[in-house]
Design a protein around this nucleic acid. Structure first.
Lengths: 228, 228
DNA sequence: CCATAAGTGGACGAGGCCCTCCACTTGCCC
DNA sequence: GGGCAAGTGGAGGGCCTCGTCCACTTATGG
C-alpha cells in the first residue's frame, strides 16, 4: 500500500464533518444549508436543487459535491430542527403534569409542521436515508407512549383514547399546512383545542373557550394546483 | 361569408356535447373519462396525461382533441361526482334534524375525500377553469351556512362554533388522505367523531364511544416522497 | 361499394430538472 | 510569493412530460 502524502488523517465524511474543509468551502456549505432551509420551508423538499444553489449563490456542482443526494441535503438541513424536536419530547416527558406536557409538545410540533413545508414532509414521512432519524423516532415513540400512558393513568385522557390518535392528530394538522401560515397557524391551534377537549376523560359541562377561528371559507380553500 | 357545406348545425362544444360525435369517437371519449377517473383517483390529478391515454387504450392526440387542457379533462371527469356531492348538500338541508344532516353530509364528503385523491384536489382547490363549479360552490356554501345556523339555533352546536370550522375540518381530513384508504377511512371516521363531540353544545358527561382506531403509529406515517 | 370528412396514433420539438464532467480559480502551507 | 490540491461554476447529456402535427384509418351517407 502506498504511503499517504496527504497530511489529513482521514477523508471527509459525506457532508458530515465540516472540520476538514477549506475555509471557503465551509462557508459555502453553510450558505447552502441556509438556502436549503429557506427554500424547503417555502416550497417543500421537492424544490429544484438549482433553486437552492441559486439562492445560496453557488453553482450546482458545489451543492452536489457537498451533498451527493437530495436526501443528504434534506437530512443535513433539518438536523437542527429535529434535534429541537427531540428536546421537546424530553421536556414533555419531564413535565410533572402529563396532560399538560402532551398538549405543549403537540402544540409545538404542530406549529412547526404548519410553518415549514419541508419539516412537514421530513417529519411525516421519515426521509429515506435519514436512518439516523430512526433512532430518534424510536426514542420519540417510546417517550410518547409513556406520556400517553401516564396521562391516561392520571385520568386526563378518556378510556378509549388510543396511541394511534397522536399520529392521527398530526396527519390532520398537516392537512392544514396546505394553507399559508397566517391561516394555518390559527387553524392548527383551534383544531388542537377542539381535539384536546374531546380527548379529556371528564369534559366539563361548559367547555373552555376556543382560540379565534381562522380566516377560512369554502371558496377560500386554496391548494397550489400545478397550473402548467 | 362563404356558405356552409356542412350539414351540421353547430360545431362541437369543447368536450361538452358528445351528441354530434361519431360513434367510435363517443366510445373513445367515454373510455378516456373512465381511465381519467381511475388514474386520477389513484395518482391524483397531476398524473401524466400519457398514463390516462395508455389506460384508455388511445393515443395522446385523441385525448387532447377531446379535452384540450388538463383542466377540461379533470372538470369532465369529476362532473358526476360533484353532482352527487351537490345532491348530498340538498339532502342535508332537507334533513329535519340539522345536526344529523350536517354530520351525515360531512361524513359522506370525507369518505370520498379520503378515497379519491383526485376528488380531494378538485374539491379542496376548486380547479381553475372549473368555473361551472363556482356556482355549485356558492350554492353549497349557502346551504352549509344555513345548516350550521339551524343546528346552532337548535342548540346542537356550541356557541363559539364558527362556520370556518367546516373548512377546517375538511382540510384536516384531507391530511389523512396521504395514507392508503384502508387506513385513511377509519382514521377519518374517528377524527370526525372526535370533532363532532367537541362541536356539541352540551356534551354528555360520558361521551359516546369512538369508532375503532386506525392502524397508525409514528413510524408508520407514510407519505409518498419522490424517491428519484 | 365509394367518396369524404371525422377521427386516430405515434413521432417529435420544447422545456424542465437531474446530475456529471472538466477547465478554471483560490485558499493554504512552505 | 509560489506551487498545488481543494474547490468552483456552468455547460451538457439524459430523462421525463407536455402538447402539436400530419399521414393514415374508418365510420357514414348516398
Amino acid at each position: 500500500m502506498p504511503d499517504q502524502p496527504s497530511h489529513k488523517p482521514s477523508g471527509p465524511a459525506a457532508g458530515d464533518t465540516p472540520a476538514e474543509l477549506r475555509a471557503d468551502a465551509r462557508r459555502n456549505r453553510e450558505r447552502v444549508l441556509d438556502a436549503a432551509r429557506e427554500v424547503f420551508a417555502a416550497q417543500g423538499v421537492d424544490a429544484p436543487m438549482s433553486a437552492v444553489a441559486r439562492r445560496a449563490g453557488v453553482g450546482v456542482a458545489t451543492l452536489y459535491r457537498r451533498f451527493p443526494t437530495r436526501s443528504a441535503l434534506v437530512t443535513a438541513a433539518f438536523e437542527d430542527q429535529l434535534a429541537v424536536c427531540a428536546t421537546a419530547f424530553e421536556e414533555a416527558q419531564a413535565d410533572p403534569n402529563p396532560g399538560h406536557g402532551l398538549y405543549t409538545l403537540l402544540e409545538r410540533i404542530c406549529t412547526t409542521l404548519v410553518t415549514d413545508r419541508g419539516f412537514e414532509t421530513v417529519f411525516m414521512a421519515g426521509f429515506p436515508e435519514a436512518l439516523a432519524y430512526d433512532r430518534q423516532r424510536a426514542v420519540a415513540e417510546e417517550r410518547l407512549s409513556h406520556l400517553v400512558q401516564r396521562a391516561r393513568d392520571a385520568g386526563q385522557l378518556r378510556e378509549d383514547f388510543a396511541p394511534a390518535d397522536i399520529p392521527l392528530l398530526l396527519l390532520a394538522v398537516s392537512g392544514l399546512a396546505a394553507q399559508p401560515p397566517e391561516t394555518a397557524l390559527p387553524a392548527a391551534r383551534r383544531l388542537l383545542t377542539y381535539l384536546f377537549q374531546s380527548f379529556q376523560a371528564h369534559p366539563p359541562s361548559r367547555p373552555a373557550p376556543l382560540p379565534p377561528a381562522p380566516p377560512l371559507d369554502l371558496s377560500g380553500l386554496q391548494r397550489p394546483v400545478s397550473a402548467r
